[in-house]
Amino acid sequence: MEALRTLKRRHISSWAYILLAIFVAAMTFLPFYWAISLSVRNPAEAFTVTGLAVPFVQYKPTLANWKTELATGETQKALVNSTIVAMCAALMTIVIATPAAYAIARFRFRRPSNGNIALWFLSQRVLPPVATAIPFFLIMRFLGLLDTHIALILLNTTFNLPIVVVIMRQAFIEVPIELEEAALVDGANHLDIFLMISVRLAAPSLAAAVLIVIAFTWNEFLFALMIGTIKAKVIPVHMAGAVDTRGVQFWFVAVRTLIAMTPPVIIALLAQRYIVRGLTFGAVKG
């Protein structure tokens, strides 16, 4: 009797949890749904269809907004630019940051100590970007790099370097050192060991780091707005143009929103397993 009651209670509470889970998931997903719903409406329906705005029930969906937007040369160009900048920034970041992370993880530094070096890298994230915006702008002007992909790649490498150093340091610490020591005994040099053994063993973390850098670079707006005008105009800056002298056009906002958000959201889903770890810079294992 007692056992039955417990079972029943557990059953009810389990349903309550499921309902709660559904509610939380719905709250999180609702804005994405709204964007999709808006993006397939006619301009006239953007304001007049209210409530949940279920396609087919409350209005007849159309792909016209999508066609117009995707057919625009400027949109295609911005997509290409964003992809180039994000990929190259990711590559540059790992090339520079991974060896440093390895050094901090595997060699002893006395002054400053290993932990302090890691912290020093981490502290670079504290700096509000706006504090360096004007100097950066002037430097890029001095280098003649305004409105180039290279400028954006350099900038984003800078912002993401500390993250990757800290993530990878943690990853290398967790890789067993025995293999490397055995290789050293066999006469391999540190560079080979780093490339052939350590990086390979830390590969999952490296993948997570790359994905995070790509997403962060894709999303970066402030510097992209300052630096990229014509040739190096990226998606967030293009996006900002959904507002014009004549107001916000909801239907285009929705389309551009989705175009901008889809790649990083997909990345987040791909890297789901590593994301907790990546975003806490390796301190919490997901």
């Binding site: 143009g241 002298t245 004549r246």
Partner: peptide, 11 residues
């Protein structure tokens, strides 16, 4: 030009 796209005001 002001950012309004291929079918927006002024641009």
């Amino acid at each position: 030009v002001n950012n309004s796209g291929p079918k927006g005001g002024i641009s």
